[in-house]
Design a protein around this nucleic acid. Structure first.
Length: 415
DNA sequence: TCTGGGGTCCTAGGACCC
DNA sequence: TCTGGGGTCCTAGGACCC
């Protein structure tokens, strides 16, 4: 196989940069990137974590995922801005369009990351560096934000390269550069090594990526089962995954929410389950998918989490079916603890046109399906709030819970 | 004191079937 | 009176990504 050339484009502090650009474009004189600022959810709604931070905020010890409480204790004058996901999708789309001018081989890996395969454009290594500079500068000039670009022969190395010094930098990590540039790094810097794996590796005396790369494969399999193969390969820069341009079939659709107050009664919990089922059902129908597995997730006020799932006899995308199964699963697992978060998820998806019911059930299912479709149509046309179930009136619970518009990009945990 | 929400994949144990 | 073993499905939970 001839050598490939892969770029990984990573937006620097995406949410914050995009918010900053948006504000400047709308006449704001302050550039959020120049002051200690962050994108964060509402503490009152119990969504209080940092989603993105500015450079000056980072210098003051603010990190992504931190609680807002902790962030404010480190930086009391931190300027906090709520997230605007619709804006982020627009920015992500604009980036996508710009990159697609260079090659159709662009994969949106997440809302703020893309891979590009520029193999076959007759570029040598100097050329691909020059092209990356052009792309980076165009993004800065035309879209107003900075990116890091990593360049290598596969996706893994390109992604690792883009993680090097930030922001607004281009790095290469070709295979021959691995010993110098990647092996000295701590093993937790490697893609797919999270906190659990990191601690486990430390326990076995593996501290750097280089040490991991030189650890006996058999031993890694003993420690980590099949995951050991992945770790060994990645540490040695081995990755054969393709840049995917077609959207992969979705495996499941789920929505969850942290409730703004501890839920302690069944009736309120059911309202949340219904509002989540509404969103899951709408999304399934939008994708023309039906699900055979329904899963309910709950987190109590001690932050412990559980889930129960059930395979139902016939695939469905009807809000009511999802809701009823969700309620059944919920009552099966809820022991009365105060609830902090609830989720509903639909899995084991199949084509939405498929049904397998008796004639009598079919007629009933058709009617429910027509009703769901009508509601979807009205909501698409006039907004989600145009049709509400009566049970939500004066309930204090939003009648639809959970987000994600139809084209919100999602990444997989594997390349 | 506080800790989001959207995903994917893997593993282990028990049930069940032949 | 004693009763195997392999394959697959189902479920719960945990790990990882951004």
């Amino acid at each position: 196989m001839s050598k490939r050339i892969i770029y990984h484009i990573d937006c620097n502090s995406a949410f914050l940069s995009w918010e900053a650009v948006h504000r400047l474009q709308h006449g704001d004189s302050l550039d959020l990137r120049t002051v200690p600022s962050a994108i964060g959810g509402s503490v009152k709604q119990r969504h209080g974590i940092i989603l993105a931070k500015s450079g000056p905020a980072k210098k003051m010890g603010i990190s992504t995922g931190q609680t807002i409480f902790e962030a404010l204790s480190k930086c009391p004058n931190l300027l906090l801005v709520p997230p605007d996901y619709a804006l982020y999708i627009q920015c992500s789309n604009a980036l996508m369009s710009l990159l697609q001018e260079y090659t159709p081989m662009v994969e949106r890996y997440s809302v703020d990351e893309c891979f590009m395969d520029v193999t076959g454009y007759g570029m040598n290594r100097e050329d691909c560096l020059e092209t990356a500079v052009v792309i980076k500068e165009r993004i800065r000039n035309e879209l107003g934000f900075t990116v890091n670009i990593g360049i290598s022969e596969n996706k893994l190395l390109a992604k690792m390269a883009s993680e090097f010094e930030k922001p607004n930098k281009i790095h290469t990590l070709f295979p021959e550069e691995i010993p110098d540039k990647m092996w000295p790094l701590p093993v937790c810097d490697m893609f797919m090594v999270g906190i659990r794996t990191c601690l486990k590796l430390y326990k076995h005396g593996i501290i750097t990526i280089g040490q991991l790369a030189h650890t006996d494969k058999e031993l890694l399999r003993v420690y980590f089962k099949s995951y050991g193969n992945v770790l060994g390969d990645y540490a040695n820069g081995i990755d054969y995954s393709e840049v995917r341009t077609d959207r992969q079939d979705i495996k499941g659709v789920g929505n969850s929410t942290t409730t703004s107050f501890d839920v302690t009664d069944y009736e309120t919990a059911k309202l949340f389950l219904l509002s989540l089922s509404e969103m899951v059902g709408m999304r399934l129908r939008m994708e023309n998918q039906k699900a055979r597995v329904i899963c309910v997730f709950l987190r109590n006020n001690q932050f412990s989490a559980w889930s129960h799932q059930h395979k139902i006899p016939a695939p469905t995308n009807a809000t009511n079916d999802i809701y009823e199964e969700a309620c059944r699963l919920f009552s099966e697992m809820w022991k009365g603890q105060p609830i902090r978060a609830l989720g509903v998820r639909a899995g084991c998806l199949s084509d939405g046109n498929f049904t397998q019911l008796s004639i009598v059930d079919q007629n009933k299912a058709d009617k429910i399906s027509e009703l769901d479709k009508s509601v979807d149509f009205i909501r698409t046309k006039f907004g989600n709030d145009s049709v509400k179930r009566g049970v939500f009136l004066h309930s204090g619970v939003s009648h639809i819970n959970g987000g994600v518009s139809d084209d919100y990009p999602m990444m997989s945990s594997l390349l």
